[in-house]
Structures are given as structure tokens and as C-alpha cells.
Design a protein around this nucleic acid. Structure first.
Lengths: 282, 282
DNA sequence: TATAATAGTGACTAATCGGTCACTTGTCAA
DNA sequence: TTGACAAGTGACCGATTAGTCACTATTATA
């Protein structure tokens, strides 16, 4: 497990410097002083390495942002916390961000779906923040505000990544919160309608039974907790069964819902079995 | 010349679909129904193809935007024209934009410098528009406004690229001009200082005598006009001379200044011989 | 100390890449 | 019809790639 970490960190550094395709496995192994064979003891393929890196970061970043935002009581502070957390991450993990932003020919279809999922989570979080901040008067502007916030992050984030030189993130956050506040207050002309936004943001992932089972078995190799393991095993039987029980599936999923590692799996299950209950937060 | 165009168009399509590195010369030639040998009759290398594509577009896009903006008299219309032109280009050449945005491991150092140059031109144009629009009250906010405008373009532009479905660009432009107007009017908290912005935006290109001569000879293969050709030839002699005359160089450069194709060459000459005269528009 | 299991090695392979070159085809003036 | 020249072809080359595997080194156990 330690070796995996070492390889991933070396890889991120090299990927950021020269790009994913231009970095060979050989170069990665030389950079961390191991042999090529040892690399393939930790990862099945170069693709698996790329997948692991991206998966690891998106998972952590999403969790950190959500935690940081939820720690704030005041709605205004939530938006500030959102900006602040993202800019801090960009400053800290600029290397990774470079890889992440610039190379999106990941090959893997699953990865694209996963990204879309995290993007959806992010949109939902932003929408919640905005609705809490401006309960009434931004109805028509809320989708534009999301896009604008993302644009600000892209633009100022680019500056942060390119300047390793440390600077006042608090001042930046303060400045951007002000801009959003102003636009929400005085803005009248909206562009995005709800439908446009939905069709833009929600790329419907191709979820198959095989993909779900694969993710399930992946989880079983990590997870220790007995209740979680049993829940997963019961779910596997239901999936393979000819007449799966919605009640059992829903019950087992609720057993998993607090386990961050299972988020993606639960999401796939809900989509596949069309279990989107409108009043659940997720 | 027709064949070059054909290859470039095929390449853009494939690059956008799968990425530059992942697209082989073989695939490009198959896609336009020619042999590998024929490809190398039009382009010296794959790098030259990439370079040509990027150069062709940046040149055209920059020129189109500047023309479109300069056609407007009313300062407000200039900002609108700026947005409109960019969004139209993104809608039309989404394929190319995809390549352009996502892959920035171009290998070639010259290309990076050229991009920085066009970015500088773009910043200058935006700054002029903003200063004309808000002559007094945005002094401290003008650099932030540039970054914000770029962010809006990145964010809404992403939407345009991903949705080939046509929509109301005028409405979008109108909406964004409103947002900039609001921020300029009510915004108080600036983040960027002039120095920060300068150090961020102006990547000093590595200009050598060899690079300049190379560009000059490249120009001589294209340009027909006799005065321009003679000016270039005189400049070449001056460059190779041990004691170049500033007067002659300046004179020859002013002969070239209206020829769009020579912009980059003139820019390099000015930088190399430190001929930046502050009151020239460029 | 002997044995078994695990971790690590690097020469090797098959495939693919960008790029070359001896050769064929097409074109047009004489 | 001929010859000369440009346009186009695709087998081939050296380099590089991801991935494999027979082998060695290290560690743990008895």
C-alpha cells in the first residue's frame, strides 16, 4: 500500500511536467527507484494507475469541500468556504490539477461517468449554497450563478496553479464572494434555464450490471467492517438474482450510505434500479 | 495548398476526438484517403502539422476578434462584439477549440511563446475595451475584470462546445455584458494588482537570433509583395551584421507593420532589439 | 539453519510510432 | 509516342512503448 502511494506521487509529478501520454512507465519507475516489474505488482496497467490517481483525488477533493462547507453555519460563510477550500487545494496540489484539467482523453468510459457524477455532486452542492443564500430572488439566475462561479474558479485557479508563489487566498475569496453577491443582487438577465442546465450537466452514465458487480468486488477487497461486507454480499445476490427485491436493495443501500467509499457504488445502484427517491438528499 | 487544407481539417477532427498524441499520422492519412508519403509532401513532420493548425487558428481568431471589435463605435457594443465573436468562433470551430484547450504539451517552445504573445494581444484588447467603457472608476478593478471575462468565456464556452445544438448567442452576450457592467459599477474589492497581473500574463519568450532568422525565411517563402520582400531582406542583413542600425531596423519594421503575417516577426524583432517604444499602440 | 513465501528485477517481446525512400502513376509539352 | 518531371505509394527502419516472465533477493517461519 505504501508502494502504491509512492508510485502515484511520482507519477503525478511526471504527468504534470510532461503529460500522461509522454510519460512512460519506465520513467515513473526510474523516478521512484523501483523496477518495471515492481510497478506491475502494484498496478495491473498504466491505465489502472491513471484511474487510481484521478479517482483518489476526486474522491478526496469532493469530500474535503463538502466537509468544509458543512462546517459553516452562516450561509455566506459557506460560499466563502467553498471558494477557499478549492483554492487551497489548487495551491497544494497544483501538479495534479494540471494533469487533471488538461488531459481528458482518459480512454476509459467508466472514468468519464465517474467525473460526471462528481460534477453533478458539485453542482448540487453549489445549488444548495446559492438557494440558502438567496432563497427568493435568484430563482431565474441560479444556474447562471453556478456557471459563473465555475468560471471564476477556472480563471483565478489558473493563476494560482501557474504561480507557486503564495498569496492571500482569503482576500481572493472575499473578492469573489462580493462579485457573486453583487450579481445575485443586481443581475436580471439570465441565460440558463433549468432544462438547459440539466441537459448540459447531466451526462447519463452507461451503467451495466457487470460494471456494478465489478465495483462491488473492488469494494469487498478494501472494506473490513462486517455489516458493510454482509450488506454488499446480500446486494450481490440480489443483483445476480432473476427477481431482485427493491426493499432489500434499498435497505442494504441505506446500510452503506454513510460509507464514503461506497458513494459511487450506491449511485450506480440507484441509477440502475431507478431508485431515485425525490426527497432523499442524494 | 488544397491538400494541406484537407490534411489539416482531417487532423483537427481526429485530434478533437482522441487527442493529439493518440492520433497517428497513419490514421490521419487514412481518414483523408492519402498515403503516408503524401502526408510528408505537405508537412515536414507531425509537429509541423500541429504547429500549422494552431498557428493558423490563433492568427485568424485574433484577427477576427480585433476586426469585429474595431467595427463598433459605441464602447458598450465593443464588449458585446468581443463576446459575440468568441462565442461564434467556439460554436463554429468547437472541434479545434477542444484540441486547443485541452492539450498544451506542445513540445515546441516556440509555440508556447507564440501563444503567450497572442494572449498578451488579447489582454491588451480587453484592457482597451474596459478602459474606454469605464474610464475612471474601475482603475483598481480592471485586471480582475479581465480575469473574470476570461473565466466567463471559459465556463460558458465549455457549454457551447459541448452542445452542438444552436442557441441564442445574442442573449448570452447580453447577459454577460450585463454582469460585467454590474461588477464594474458595484464591485469594490479587487484582487489583482497591476504587478501581479503583469507577472502572471507576460511569459517572457526566449527569443534568439536563429529563431528570428528562421521566421524571416519562412515569411520570404510566402510573401509576394516586393517592398515587403526587400524590407525583409534588408532586415536579414542587419540581423547578421555585427553593428546593426536601429534606424534601419525601425524603418523596415514600420514597412511591415500593416502586414498581419509579419506581426509575430515584428514582435520578436522589437523584443530582441529592445525597441519597445511606449507610445506605439503595439 | 533450512524452507517457503513474498517482493523485486531487468532482459525480452510484440506492437506501434514517426519518418524515409526506392518505386509507380499521372500529366503535359515536344 | 516519347521523355521528363511532379505527385503519390507503401514496404520498411530505428526508436520507443506497455507489458511479461524466468529468475534473484529478502524476509518470515519452523
Amino acid at each position: 500500500m505504501l508502494k502504491k502511494q509512492l508510485i502515484m506521487e511520482s507519477a503525478i509529478e511526471l504527468f504534470a511536467k510532461k503529460g500522461i501520454d509522454a510519460t512512460s512507465v519506465q520513467q515513473i519507475t526510474e523516478h521512484c527507484g523501483i523496477s518495471k516489474g515492481a510497478f506491475y505488482l502494484s498496478f495491473k496497467s498504466k491505465d489502472e494507475l491513471i484511474f487510481s490517481i484521478i479517482d483518489y483525488f476526486t474522491k478526496n477533493v469532493t469530500a474535503n469541500i463538502e466537509r468544509s462547507v458543512s462546517e459553516q453555519q452562516n450561509p455566506h460563510d459557506k460560499l466563502a468556504a467553498y471558494f477557499m477550500e478549492i483554492f487551497n487545494i489548487l495551491q497544494k496540489y497544483g501538479d495534479f490539477a494540471t494533469v487533471f484539467i488538461k488531459e481528458q482523453h482518459f480512454i476509459n468510459e467508466t472514468l468519464i461517468d465517474k467525473m460526471a457524477y462528481y460534477d453533478e455532486l458539485n453542482n448540487k452542492l453549489l445549488l444548495d449554497i446559492l438557494r440558502e443564500l438567496y432563497p427568493s430572488n435568484v430563482d431565474s439566475l441560479q444556474y447562471d450563478l453556478i456557471i459563473i462561479i465555475k468560471g471564476l474558479i477556472a480563471s483565478y485557479g489558473d493563476f494560482i496553479i501557474k504561480n507557486s508563489y503564495p498569496f492571500d487566498i482569503e482576500k481572493l475569496t472575499d473578492s469573489l464572494v462580493e462579485k457573486i453577491k453583487i450579481i445575485a443582487k443586481y443581475g436580471e438577465k439570465s441565460f440558463f434555464t433549468k432544462d438547459m442546465f440539466k441537459s448540459y450537466s447531466s451526462h447519463q452514465p452507461m451503467i451495466t450490471k457487470d460494471l456494478i458487480v465489478e465495483e462491488l468486488q473492488q469494494l469487498l477487497t478494501h472494506i473490513q467492517d462486517e455489516v458493510l461486507r454482509e450488506s454488499l454480499q446480500i446486494l450481490e445476490k440480489q443483483i445476480q438474482s432473476e427477481s431482485p427485491s427493491k426493499a432489500i436493495i434499498l435497505g442494504m443501500l441505506s446500510n452503506l450510505k454513510n460509507e464514503q467509499e461506497c458513494d459511487w457504488f450506491c449511485y450506480m445502484m440507484r441509477k440502475y434500479y431507478e431508485l431515485n427517491i425525490s426527497n432523499t438528499p442524494f
